[in-house]
């Protein structure tokens, strides 16, 4: 094969390359090109009034952590983003429970629940956040009316995170359940039959067979959840209406970069975010063959 390509093969190679050319061009412009500029901006200071950029070295990066004007809100956005990640294990736990219940064959309508639980995923985040905001409203929200107390869900820095976590963990159940059900279908039936003959209880079977065998999917969800969670924005903007307690990293980048034209500072933050996400993806690559069961 390494020798010389035949005329036909050469022609085919040329055509094949032409066919993949558009995605490659798009990628070079909108991803690589943009990434390079983000990197460049992160070392520059952009003057809003003159429209000029000046090289400032690592200043934007150190400003993020040290400058009194930005460091508090940047650190706050990191903290919020990380705390809000709590909804991931919660939806995974509830989704797993739902999947096990449906799989146990004790209930009818497994398909029905599956379809219903997935609805929030296909719904618009904006519309859903608007409705949830109304449900959690401090004054006339249905939750406060039911409790009979005026709890400041939407304005308190801690409570708004509780509200977002509650909302997101419920909305994530469908995805987790579907993925777990699919993973469980791949477990060979004879494992359970053998365990049954040995007299292992259902609970024991779950911990000794099901749980270890679905670790790849658990891991997959954890990683995709982390990557998605790191990029959360609508929760801050629409549900939180920009209050401090709900500002995420991407909200910080949007606010400084797009809203206030501090491109340098926002780019530095976005480069750090990209790095964090790349590291998580690398960890996924490295770890997936270690603590994850594979055949």
């Amino acid at each position: 094969m390494k020798k010389r390509m035949s005329k036909v093969a050469k022609k085919e190679a040329r055509v094949a390359f032409a066919f993949i050319l558009l995605p490659i061009i798009g990628f070079c412009i909108f991803t690589i090109g943009a990434m390079i500029f983000s990197f460049k901006y992160s070392f520059e200071n952009y003057n809003i009034f003159t429209g000029e950029s000046k090289f400032v070295g690592w200043k934007n990066y150190s400003d993020l952590f040290k400058n009194v004007l930005y460091s508090a809100s940047f650190k706050n956005s990191i903290k919020n983003t990380v705390v809000l990640l709590l909804s991931i294990p919660l939806s995974m736990g509830m989704g797993l429970l739902a999947a096990v219940f449906v799989k146990s064959g004790k209930v009818k309508g497994g398909k029905f629940f599956q379809v219903l639980y997935y609805i929030p995923v296909v719904s618009s985040a904006v519309a859903m956040n608007i409705v949830w905001r109304y449900i959690f409203n401090n004054e006339f929200g249905i939750i406060n009316l039911l409790i009979g107390e005026k709890i400041a869900w939407l304005s308190d820095d801690t409570l708004i995170k509780v509200a977002i976590i509650a909302k997101n963990s419920l909305n994530g159940i469908g995805t987790a359940m579907i993925l777990y059900l699919a993973a469980m279908l791949n477990i060979p039936k004879d494992y359970y039959e053998a365990a049954e003959i040995d007299g292992a209880s259902k609970v024991r079977q779950f911990f000794k067979i099901t749980l270890p065998l679905i670790t790849p999917i658990t891991f997959y969800q954890l990683i995709t959840g982390l990557i998605g969670g790191f990029q959360s924005y609508a929760d801050s903007q629409v549900f939180g209406a920009g209050v401090q307690g709900a500002q995420t990293i991407v909200y910080f980048i949007w606010q400084r970069g797009i809203n206030q034209s501090r491109y340098g500072l926002a780019s530095a933050a976005s480069i750090l975010l990209a790095l964090a996400i790349m590291i998580i993806t690398m960890i996924q690559f490295k770890m997936s063959d270690k603590w994850v069961y594979e055949e």
């Binding site: 995605p23 490659i24 990628f27 909108f30 991803t31 690589i32 090109g33 943009a34 990434m35 500029f37 983000s38 901006y41 990557i227 790191f230 990029q231 924005y233 990293i249 991407v250 980048i253 949007w254 970069g257 797009i258 491109y263 926002a266 780019s267 976005s270 480069i271 975010l273 990209a274 996400i277 790349m278 993806t281």
Partner: peptide, 17 residues
Amino acid sequence: FLMSGMMVPYAALMMPQ
């Protein structure tokens, strides 16, 4: 090459775009 782009967050591309 193409798939590597999937791990770049949109927020990191947004400003230059």
